[in-house]
Each structure stands twice: as structure tokens, then as C-alpha cells.
Simulated scan of single mutants.
Amino acid sequence: MNKKIDVKMLVLDMDGTLLNKEHTISEKNKKYIQLAKERGVKVVLVSGRDVPALKNFSKILNLNEYIGAMNGAIVYDVKNEEIIGETYLRKEHVDKLFEISNNNNELLTLFKDNIIYASDKPNPFLEILNRFVKKPIISSENLSIYLKENNIYESLHKAAFIDEYENLKKLYDKIYNELKDELSLSFSLPFIMEIFRNDSNKMTAVQKIAELYNIDRENILAMGDGENDISMLEFAGHSVSPANCMPSVVKYVDEICTTNDRDAVAEIIKKYILV
């Protein structure tokens, strides 16, 4: 027998959860999201992706209310086309990340809106990221100077180091030991270690949106597959990860379902909402 959950808000991560390996939403997932909407459930997209990308997915799904972008750094009202919450990395954090990048010869990428900034040294993982997100990447030989000269340095939403997982794991330990009280670190993909403010994550975005809807956390069902989803998975009344999730996420969720390529979202909507 299915656990009885009064779901009023369904929170969905995008990559690895709602999106399949082709980075598209299946027809079955689309159909079941519409059925959830017809039951009065608020469907909320919360992702590391930027506002334009999430607005596009919202349009595909006929969703017209709130989204959480850039790992929660931006809460956006789609209907009224306005930002209702936004946080940036502090200058001292960006300074420190550049120092770490230089000392460890690791590629630092920085994100503002729908633009990615990176140094111009060759990196195969940056090419993969470019194909993955299909967003502009601006490169500069001296990135910190470029960002300062163009008044971008203090308006960055998040950062990421990009490399092989084993190298990033070593770097994670160095950064965590020094900055754990101020910054959150998580792997959205094995080659991407994202960095954002402790007080600005997917949980804070979900919490803000739930308050706007006047929905209690016990009535929230959240789905996600990556470490950057853990904060919102722990916050939700019930949490689910698809079977393709990162192994480190499993202990934080109530349930594992099928994979994103087998319509995990549709399966969970059928199980807990269409009952």
C-alpha cells in the first residue's frame, strides 16, 4: 500500500530527474504533470539552470507561476516576469575562489543569469558543459580583471569547478574545511562541483515559494538526483530520487523510484497524486 501523502506542491529538479538523457521532457511526464495540475497541485521547477531555460520549460509544461533558478539564487515569478528573490556570491568569496583556482590549477567557472564566464585555457570538460547547457561561455585570459572591469564581479549567482571527479573531490575537502560556514559545495554532475552561498540554495527557494502558496512543508513532495538537491529533499515532507541519482544522495531521500529515462516523475505522480 502506498504511503498516504497529501501533496499540494510537487518540486522537480530538471537534469537527471524530469529531463531524460536527451535533455528533453517525455510526453508521458508532460501528460502526468498536467494531470497533477488538474488535481490542484502546484508544480514547481527548481534547478541549477538559469531563468530563461526554466521559463522555456515552464512554457512547454504550461506552468505559469514560480520557479527557482541557479540553485535557488533566483526565485522568479513567471506570470509577472519579475525576480522576487535574488542573492549573489560575496566579493570575498569570489576572491577566495580565484585564489583556490590559481593555487590548484583548477578551472573556475562563474555564472550570472544565462552566461558562463571562464578562463580561456583549454579544458575538455568545459566543452562538455557547453554542449550540455547550450549557453554562451565568455572566456578571458585574466577572468578576474575582466569581471571587475565589466562590473560583474559582485553580481555572480554561483560558481563551479570543472574537472575529473577524483580531482574535484580532493579540492572539495580543501574548500570545505576553510569555507563550510559560508559556502555550500555539491556535485550536480560528476565533473561539476557547484558552489553557492549557504543561505541561498534549493531549500531556501522551495521554502520561499511554499510561503507564497501558503503550503506547509509536510505537503511538499520533492524529486532530485544530485547533491545540489539534498537541501530541498531534506526539507520536503516526502522526497524521492530516480534510480540514476548520485550514490551520495540515496541516504537523504525517503524513496528511490525508476530512472529519469523511464519517466520517474510520471511514476511518482501516479503513485502519490492520482490516487
Rank of each mutant, 00 (worst) to 15 (best):
Y32Q: 03
K251S: 12
K170R: 14
V240C: 00
I74C: 10
Y117K: 06
E182D: 15
E267D: 08
L45I: 13
I162E: 02
N198T: 03
L189S: 14
F191E: 00
I74E: 06
Y66C: 02
D113I: 12
M193G: 02
K270T: 10
R131H: 11
K170C: 10
L183A: 08
L61K: 12
L221A: 03
H23I: 10
T109A: 10
L110Y: 10
F161A: 01
E166P: 04
P52S: 09
D77H: 11
L274E: 05
I256V: 03
K271I: 06
F187Y: 15
R197F: 00
A222V: 06
N201W: 13
M14R: 09
V133P: 00
L97W: 05
E255T: 12
N62A: 08
P122R: 10
L171Q: 00
N2F: 08
I33S: 08
N20D: 12
G224N: 04
E227W: 13
L110R: 08
K169E: 02
Y213G: 03
Y146H: 15
L185Y: 05
K4S: 08
L61P: 04
V265L: 11
A118L: 03
N29R: 10
K134L: 05
R90S: 04
I115P: 03
E38H: 11
G48S: 06
L189V: 09
R90F: 10
D229S: 02
R217K: 15
D50L: 00
F125Q: 05
K91N: 06
I230T: 07
K174N: 04
K251V: 06
V253H: 09
L129N: 10
H93T: 08
S188H: 10
I230Y: 09
I25P: 05
Y66N: 06
I230K: 08
K4L: 09
L126T: 07
K271P: 09
K59G: 05
